[in-house]
Computed example of a mutant assay.
Amino acid sequence: MKQILNHLYQHKTLTRAEANEILKQIASAAFNTSQMAAFLGVYAMRPVTLEELSGFREAMLELQIPVDTNGFETIDLCGTGGDGKDTFNISTISSFVAAGAGLKVTKHGNYAVSSSVGSSNILEHFGYRFSQDRDKLLHELDKAGITFLHAPLFNPAMKNIAPVRKALGTKTFFNILGPMINPANPDRQLIGVFNTETARLYHYIYQQSKKDYTVVHSLDGYDEVSLTGTFKAFNRAGERNFTPRDLGLPVLQAGEIGSGDGIADSAQIFLNVLKNEATPAQKSVVIANAALAIHTAKPDKPIEESIEKAKASIEKGEAFKVFDKLMEINAS
C-alpha cells in the first residue's frame, strides 16, 4: 500500500487494472485500517476518475454474490448518499410507490454511513429480516412486487472496508459504487447522485450497458429529485434540466423534507407517506422520484402519466399494500 499511496500523493491516478487489483486486495484484508483510511482519504481530496471507477466497479462485480431474478424485469431506485442533506428515506419509500404502480423492484441498500438513517436501518426497524436466500427473495418479488438486497450480504468486499467508512463518517468512492453493484443486475435504474460530475460518470458508464436508466441530481446538491429547485436528468436521450413546475409539482423548502430526529421520526414519515397521511411536501417529493422511476421503465409515455401513476399508488393505498405484503411474507 505504501507504493500505491506514494503514487497517489504525487497527484497521479490509477489505471483501470490497478484500481481493480487494489480493490480485490482490500477485499482480501491485505491492508490495515490506517492504510485503507489513507487510501479513501485520497478520494476525499479529488474526484475518482472514470478509469478508476470502472476498475473498482468491475472488481466488486467479480467478487459479489449475484441474484438471478428468474426472468423478472426489475428496477432499482437508489442514491449514492453523501450529499449531507439528511433527507428522509425518499428513494426507499419511492421504491414501494413504484412497486404499487406495478413495477418489480429489487431495492439495493445498506446501513447509513454519511447520513442518519439508511434504507437498511429503516427496514430493519420495521422488522424486515435480511436474507441471501434466492427463493425467499424471489417469493417476495413475485408476491409483493419488491424485495430488498442488503448490500453487505452480497458484496463481501465491503466487509473489511465497512468499519473504516463508518469511522470516517464521510462520503467516499464507495458511495458512488453502491448503486452500480446491485447483485440482481436490474434491467432499469433510477440513480440519484450528489454532483453533476458524478452524474456524467454514471451517464457514460451506463450508456455502455443495456440498461434503461435515469441519473438525477438536484443542482442545489441533493442526490435525488428534491423539488427544492432545478434538477438534471440524464438518460439515453441525453441530458435535460427540469423544474418542479415541469412535473406539475410545487417548489419545496429544504426543511420540509428533512429526516427528523433519528430512526423513530424517519419511520413515522415512512409510514405517513405510504398511508397517504404525510405532509403535502413529503408526499410530493416521493411522487416525483417514484414517477421518474416509472418513466424510466416506460419512457415512451409522457411524464405526466407517470406522475399520475405515482400519485394513485399512494392515494389508492397500493404502496402501503406492497409494504404490508412484503413484511408479511418476510416474517413467514
Rank of each mutant, 00 (worst) to 15 (best):
R57L: 04
F96G: 00
P183T: 02
P47R: 12
K309C: 13
G41T: 02
D187C: 07
Q268V: 11
N110T: 10
P280W: 02
F31P: 00
T279V: 02
T74V: 10
K210H: 14
F270C: 10
E58A: 15
L23T: 02
N185L: 09
L149C: 14
A30M: 11
M158P: 03
E277H: 14
A162C: 03
L292M: 15
L271E: 09
I205E: 11
G260M: 01
S94T: 01
Y9A: 13
G238N: 04
N155I: 13
G79N: 13
E304P: 04
A151V: 00
E318V: 04
K311M: 12
L138C: 13
M180Y: 09
V67M: 04
G79P: 03
N272V: 04
G262L: 14
G127P: 01
P250E: 00
R134E: 14
V215S: 01
Q35L: 02
L249A: 10
Q208Y: 02
K104R: 11
A29P: 05
Y204E: 15
N182P: 06
A44G: 06
T172D: 06
V225D: 05
M158W: 12
G145I: 10
F174S: 02
V48M: 00
L201W: 01
Q10P: 08
L190T: 07
L274G: 12
T170Q: 05
Q25M: 13
K136D: 10
K159N: 14
T33E: 13
K159W: 09
A199S: 07
L50E: 03
A264Y: 07
K283Y: 04
K298M: 13
S114Y: 08
S120N: 06
N235V: 03
A44L: 08
